[in-house]
Structure formats: C-alpha cells, structure tokens
C-alpha cells in the first residue's frame, strides 16, 4: 500500500484552484500587452504602448499616493492597536477581555462597504463629527474630511486595526509574564517595562503587523473610492476608472500589473528593512 494514500485525491482540487487562479492572473498579463481599440471591447495585437503610458504624472501620482497612504495607515494602525492588544492579553477580568475581543474584531467581518459607508456618515460635512465639534464649539464651521487624504486614512486605520490587533495580541501573548515581573522586580517603572522589555520582545510581531497592514492598505478600493471621491486617487481607483469608465481594459490590465509589481516590490523592500532592524535589536 502507498505510504501517502491521500496524495492524489487531495492534491487534484488544490492544483485545479491554483491553475484557475494563475489563468486569471495570466489574462491580466495578456491584456496588458494588447492594443486598445477605442469604442470596442475587443483588443488588438501585441504592443508595449500601455506600459509607456504609465509615466504620465496622473498614474505616477496614484502609485506614490498609494504608497504614502499605505505607510501612514500602517503607522497609525500600529500606534492605536498596541494598547488595545496589550489590554486584551493582560487584563485579568474575563468580561473586559470578551468585550475587547468582540469590539475589536467585529469591524473585520462587517466588510469594506458597511465600514466605508459608516465613515461617510461620520466624516461628512453635515456628518456626526462636524455636528459634534460645532455643538461643543471647538470649530465655527464644518471641517472638510471627505475627499481628503486625512479622511481616507482615518477610515482605513479603523479598517486595518482588527488584523493588527490580532497579530500584536498573538505576539504579546507569547511573552512570558516573568520578563515583565523581573523588570519590575529590578526597579523598572511600568512605562519602562513597556519600552525596554515588552516592545523589544514583540518586535517581530510589530514588524509583521506593519507589513501586513501596508500590503492590505495598498489593495484598498471602496474607501478611497467613496471617501476619496475621486480626489484621492489610489492605483485601485485608477484601474477601475480605466476599466469601467473608459472601457480601456488593456490599460486597466497594465495598471493592475503595476499594482502587483509595486505591492510585491514594496513588500520585499520592507522585509529587507525589517531584517536589518531585527538584526540591530538583536545586537543591542
């Protein structure tokens, strides 16, 4: 009898899915090399013209924009998620822990549209935030959050926090509490324990959380689309614009290829920086 009796029956479906997925990606690559025939959904012969077009400032700007927004989102997500993850892991009160888990995880499962719509209600000119600030008297006229980068980041950070919290909480839960006790026993105040012991020990989690959120934000679509309202253009929005407004599928495909390349390139770059960072903290 075979030593691996389930190999073939278990392998075939997985391979099938992989092949279908690769075929879909290959379609994009194929389209990106085709000539666009205006006014028609059919495409022409092979060409590299599409790739030449992306040097136009508007697309170049979309790429930079995507990069900057993703960096900012990952940074703020990290800052806001850490205290929640810490509280979640270290609280001894069961109901607090359950509440923290439910409140911080629910947004993950409500979907991009529900969350983006909710933020439109909060950030709109007559939205919740402006009404509140006007009522309190902090501002005298509505602040524009919609159609700004700040507004997009505010929404994206909340969108990204559940995943970051899960990653950080896992990292924190893997530190033996003896390290914190030992530091306190040697005279470290609570804040010092956090900065000198807890944060360095969770550095791998911090780095991987940052990278995951960065990659995730690069693929955000609904939030920049609706809250950015065309004024904050990320690659995703540029592709949609080309595909569905201009019906220029070949160029949309080219932008998708660029999106893929820049996603993988920036991930590789961040991994590189992360490795260097980890080595430095290791030598310390």
């Amino acid at each position: 009898m075979s030593k691996r009796p389930f190999l073939i029956p278990f392998l075939v479906p997985a391979i099938l899915v992989a092949v279908i997925f690769l075929a879909a990606l290959a379609e994009i690559l194929q389209y990106s090399l085709r000539e666009f025939i205006p006014g028609s959904l059919d495409v022409g012969g092979f060409t590299l013209d599409n790739f030449a077009r992306i040097y136009r400032p508007v697309y170049f700007k979309a790429v930079i924009n995507t990069f900057v927004l993703s960096l900012a989102t990952a940074f703020f997500t990290l800052i806001l998620s850490y205290p929640i993850a810490f509280a979640l892991v270290r609280t001894k009160v069961e109901w607090v822990r359950t509440l923290l888990i439910l409140l911080s995880i629910t947004p993950l499962f409500t979907g991009e549209i529900v969350r983006t719509y909710a933020w439109m209600l909060v950030l709109g000119t007559n939205g919740f935030l402006n009404t509140m600030l006007l009522d309190i008297g902090v501002i005298s006229e509505p602040v524009t959050f919609m159609y700004t980068r700040a507004g997009v980041v505010i929404a994206l950070v909340q969108f990204a926090m559940p995943v970051m919290i899960i990653i950080l909480a896992t990292a924190i839960s893997h530190i033996n509490t003896d390290y914190e006790k030992a530091a306190a026993n040697l005279g470290a105040r609570p804040w010092t324990v956090i900065t000198r012991v807890v944060i360095p020990l969770t550095m791998p989690g911090i780095i991987s959380g940052f990278i995951v959120i960065f990659a995730w934000t690069m693929s955000a679509f609904a939030t920049p689309q609706l809250i950015g309202g065309g004024k904050v253009l990320m690659i995703s929005n540029a592709i949609y614009l080309q595909g569905f407004s201009a019906l220029n599928f070949p160029f949309a495909a080219t932008l998708s290829v660029i999106a893929l390349i820049s996603a993988f390139a920036s991930l590789a770059l961040m991994k590189l920086i992360a490795n260097r960072l980890e080595r430095q903290t290791a030598i310390h």
Partner: peptide, 11 residues
Amino acid sequence: MVFQSYALFPH
C-alpha cells in the same frame, strides 16, 4: 527575585 524560568531578557 530569581524566577523558575530565570526570565533573562532574551533581547
């Protein structure tokens, strides 16, 4: 205090 796990800071 000396801990059972020693709790020597690994970093």
